[in-house]
């Protein structure tokens, strides 16, 4: 019976993510004084990509790359409690903890590296090299923040961390451990890969990066994963730092605001080169993370 609820939750998350992506594209278009795409454009793109008639594969790993990526996104979803105190939408959070989720965040990238490598396009290899090096440095402040809150709450289970934050805004990690929240929110910018940290698939300079060779269904899977991964990372941060959610309404609002923050930063700031972004993550966010551990 659990699997039905999990699939229901996945269905809700995918639809919410697609709608949110469309709305956010419209918002960024408004920033540029354009009208922008219709809010249902991500749905159409997805349908069209799954309906591409001709497909080919460069090899086994090329085939498995998007599968790995998608399993990374779905893996995060499986072990994440969505609604606190709700048996139906807590997924398999009793079986996995924060470490497992951090592992799933990286495995997608690794699978993508194998797939893009077999694709053989030089741009995808440049892109994935940049992606891996940037993501490695993004993980540093995020891991420090996770260690900090693990010390603070004496647990790695997300459900228990959410439970400890119940009872008003003053109990949120945002208030009780602002240094860890700061480090993690700065690394969140790099995780979402909007500007200034979008050199991985910089569309002008390095056409599209890792997914250059992926088309049709492969691309559709990558798009699906992008939607799941984006929303799930926002929900992870909501659970860790912003008190979780007790119903779908609060979840949508909080996830939207957290997701909106890198988009907002990206609409304002220009792009970093890869060496600049790596250095940036190793200076301020890492320093904040270390302070968060010292002053816990």
């Amino acid at each position: 019976m659990k699997i039905v609820y999990v699939l229901l939750g996945l269905f809700i998350i995918i639809n919410y993510g697609l709608l949110q992506a469309g709305v956010l594209r419209r918002i960024t278009a408004r920033v540029g004084k354009r009208i922008g795409v219709p809010f249902y454009q991500p749905y159409i793109d997805l349908i069209k990509n799954y309906a591409i008639r001709s497909q080919f594969s460069h090899g086994v790993m090329f085939y498995l790359g998007p599968v790995f990526r998608l399993s990374g996104g779905v893996g995060i979803f499986l072990f994440m409690p969505l609604i606190f105190g709700n048996e139906i939408f807590s997924n398999y959070s009793m079986a996995g903890d924060l470490i497992l989720i951090m592992y799933f965040m990286f495995i997608g990238m690794l699978g993508m590296a194998l797939g893009a490598g077999e694709g053989g396009h030089p741009y995808s290899i440049i892109g994935i090299t940049r992606g891996l090096s940037q993501f490695t440095t993004v993980e540093v402040p995020f891991t420090l923040a996770v260690i900090s809150i693990a010390i603070q709450y004496q647990t790695l289970s997300i459900t228990e961390i959410v439970a400890a934050q119940q009872g008003g805004i003053m109990h949120w990690t945002l208030m009780t451990n602002p240094l860890a929240t700061g480090a993690a929110m700065l690394s969140f910018l790099g995780m979402m890969m909007y500007a200034p940290f979008n050199v991985v698939n910089a569309p002008q300079e390095n056409p599209l990066g890792p997914p250059t060779e992926f088309h049709g269904t492969f691309l559709g899977m990558l798009q699906t994963n992008r939607v799941i991964l984006g929303v799930m990372e926002a929900i992870l941060f909501m659970n860790l730092f912003f008190g979780g959610a007790t119903n779908w309404g609060i979840l949508f609002i909080k996830a939207f605001l957290i997701y909106f923050y890198p988009v907002f930063v990206g609409a304002v700031f220009p792009r970093y080169r890869i060496d600049q972004s790596i250095r940036w993550f190793l200076y301020l966010p890492t320093a904040l993370g270390i302070l968060a551990i010292i002053f816990i």
């Binding site: 009208i35 795409v37 599209l208 250059t212 060779e213």
Partner: peptide
């Protein structure tokens, strides 16, 4: 603003 009509550029 061709985005209105679902026209998007793609580099590959």
């Amino acid at each position: 603003d061709a985005y209105r009509f679902g026209v998007q550029q793609r580099p590959t």
